[in-house]
Write a protein that binds this DNA or RNA. Structure first.
Lengths: 169, 169
DNA sequence: TGAAGCATGTAATTTGTTACATGATTGG
DNA sequence: CCAATCATGTAACAAATTACATGCTTCA
């Protein structure tokens, strides 16, 4: 078995499955949609291809439903739990760039005002969305998830501040 | 000629070349390293492969040096200038997720304190680096570049604030 | 009962990343 | 003058995105 490289995508799938116990790709997708997707969106197809890879590497098991749609039900193996735990226990100093498309345009010479206008709209909407999420089911989610949401809110506020300063010119 | 899809990478190359006039991939890389790389890092190979693609699409021209290393010198064509201008003029409401690896660990259940420790270190370093850049050659760079740097600084400050709150537990 | 939209999956394509390979230059 | 590092380029590989295809539900 070739040593499968585990990417962030892998850990996302492993993490979601650890929580869910057993799930179909679609279920994982549903779960992700309401929480993770706010700061790390996976493509539809990745919920299908990545579990397959992980199964090949021994970190998951599959079982097909016997009746009906014969969907694939994935579960995490103990090997899977282990790599996940190791990854989680290892603090990372890794860093990601902003990679914001709006900022890129600004950088490459776009006129600030109209760009700021458009950016403000989306960032304000996002901010509202996040804040609604937080006031809603607070307490229900695990701590890490709440914290991630807080981080998202803080950064959205920052974007709003940033683009606000450029909108009225 | 197949309609080549232009990605952010494409516009980065086009934008850098418009500024530079004529340049080798390595020169572009140098320029990017001191400014753009802070929020949008391109891989070494992309400075070579992307210009090739763009040349095929008619947005750049190449010429090889006659002597010595026979390096490839790229220039932007008027078609290239045009797509770049169009892109720049079109405000975008596009949105990117944070996609931060540290945040992902937190989300998936990592212990906050040690993670915060590691994250603080890198973010503090980045912040310092950016601030040094700003105080140094201020005024020399085009406005968009300065603004992008400001955005970077603001977000780094936010990260420092965020992880600080989790470090002492 | 049939159209719309969810649910499910895979294949093809494109992009990004890693790895390899070698040529120049410079300073010890 | 040779070792280290910078510069230059391409090829192979892996991953993510897009596109395709079709099966089930539900409700008008």
């Amino acid at each position: 078995m070739a040593a499968t490289r585990l990417t962030p995508t892998s850990y996302i799938i492993l993490g979601l499955l650890e929580q869910a116990g057993t799930a179909t790709p679609y279920e994982l997708k549903r779960v992700a949609a309401t929480s993770l997707a706010n700061f790390w969106l996976l493509q539809h197809a990745q919920f299908y291809t990545e579990p397959e890879r992980l199964t090949g590497a021994g970190y998951l098991t599959v079982e097909r439903e016997r009746h009906g749609r014969r969907r694939k039900l994935y579960s995490i193996t103990s090997a899977g739990k282990q790599v996940l735990a190791e990854w989680r226990a290892q603090p990372t100093g890794e860093f990601t760039e902003l990679r914001d498309p709006g900022l890129l345009k600004l950088f490459l010479g776009a006129k600030p005002a109209p760009l700021a206008e458009a950016q403000l709209e989306t960032h304000r909407a996002k901010l509202q969305e996040y804040e609604a999420l937080r006031t809603k089911d607070t307490g229900r989610r695990p701590r890490g998830q709440r914290l991630a949401l807080d981080a998202g809110i803080a950064h959205e506020r920052e974007w709003v501040r940033f683009w606000s300063g450029l909108a009225e010119e």
